[in-house]
Design a protein around this nucleic acid. Structure first.
Lengths: 218, 218
DNA sequence: CTGCCAGCTTTCGTATACGAATTCAATTGA
DNA sequence: TCAATTGAATTCGTATACGAAAGCTGGCAG
């Protein structure tokens, strides 16, 4: 019997939607209504309601008077989350450095190669997928679970932002360079170098975001 | 159905229980069952269930097969939260430094004086209250809301730990000294000094906790 | 006397129903 | 023609009910 079949419906639905959100499979404008989702899963409103309300309390969804949607982050919130990232991610990645398995290193290597290829092809979708792979790999290796969960909590929310910043052609090469350096630091188990590179990575993302925002308005 | 206020029952119940938890009015061993609480509030199980489940998902309560109780944090979790505190609180307090109003400074001064008096009287309850006042004052002045909420999220969970560490007589004087220095740094709007002192404050708490733990086991 | 099994109680998860609030739309009046 | 108002539809919050799972208890066998 499947593991998922044994667990409660509300938890299954929660996991399914969280996965969809984290993988960016949900676009702005999508609206979830408990009754509709319930019909899709052949259950009543209640487990769906539990799952969606939980997701909205955790910030993954926005509970409006007419269904649940992706939250629209304000400029202010995005900047605040960048500050959180600067504080947490360098240290978290440093902690993860010594926990990475050989499989993890292989995944990272593969992802970085995929990332490098986008310098030629220009496929932003591929760059995004590779970046997500890299990030997911080291985050899952962070031994401090509280820290890891804290990071995961806000990452889903700024998914759209990160997707957008990857379209910043100015930073494309810098980004891939940083990823390559990070891989090398991970391989060498050089936690201090990883910490520094992660900080520069977050700062680069913030730069791209601010530049993008300036373009939009200017 | 009663309509004691405009807001929804589940949110009212959530707020009431969160307040009780944060003020430390709930002791280990207390058990909450939705039907019992529902009777107390003259509502059905559902709003109570929503509130208690939300609190448990946020880590304030532990959902067992026999009601909701205060969570028993493992040694590992406590240490992980101390690491989070080291990463976030120094910077958060530094950011708050320039946001403190005159009223805030007055509150801090009053609280530090109360703290100092406990050096003579030895009233740990009073020391705890004063420390909470100090902490609440500067946390509420943190301008980065995401950062503030992240800190608040784990603080309620380690309430019991902090209460316990304040009973560490060895560190009593050190603690009050640090609070006095922090107050001075706040008054002088010296964010760098605040940052350093907060780090030392968290480290002192961690030391006390580890010493306490060693005593218990040794 | 002790350990195990059955059924009994408690508690939870889910289903269904209904009223309230909010939004949408259509009709009416200026 | 356009705006306002009213009715309909949608969606949420809460109430109630029922079945299932997890402890607890008491009796029975060894």
């Amino acid at each position: 019997m499947h593991r998922t079949a044994k667990r409660h419906m509300k938890d299954q639905i929660y996991d399914i939607f969280l996965g969809r959100i984290q993988r960016g499979e949900i676009s702005h404008g999508d609206r979830f209504v408990d009754t509709a989702v319930a019909e899709e899963f052949n259950v009543s409103r209640m487990p769906v309601r539990d799952a969606l309300m939980r997701l909205s309390h955790e910030g993954y969804l926005d509970s409006t008077t007419r269904g649940f949607t992706l939250p629209n982050l304000s400029m202010r919130q995005i900047c605040e989350i960048f500050e959180l990232r600067r504080l947490l991610e360098p240290r978290a990645a440093a902690l993860a450095t010594n926990q990475l398995t050989e499989d993890d290193i292989a995944s990272l290597t593969c992802a970085v190669e995929q990332s490098e290829r986008t310098l030629v092809t220009g496929e932003i979708e591929s760059l995004y997928a590779a970046s997500e792979d890299i990030r997911r790999t080291w985050i899952m290796a962070v031994p401090n679970i509280e820290l890891r969960d804290t990071i995961l909590r806000y990452m889903a929310q700024i998914q759209a932002v990160r997707m957008a910043t990857l379209r910043d052609a100015t930073a494309h090469e810098t980004l891939v360079d940083l990823q390559r350096d990070m891989l090398r630091a991970f391989v060498e188990r050089d936690a201090a170098k990883v910490e520094l590179l992660l900080l520069r990575y977050v700062l680069a993302g913030e730069d791209s975001f601010l530049r993008l925002k300036a373009c939009e308005q200017g």
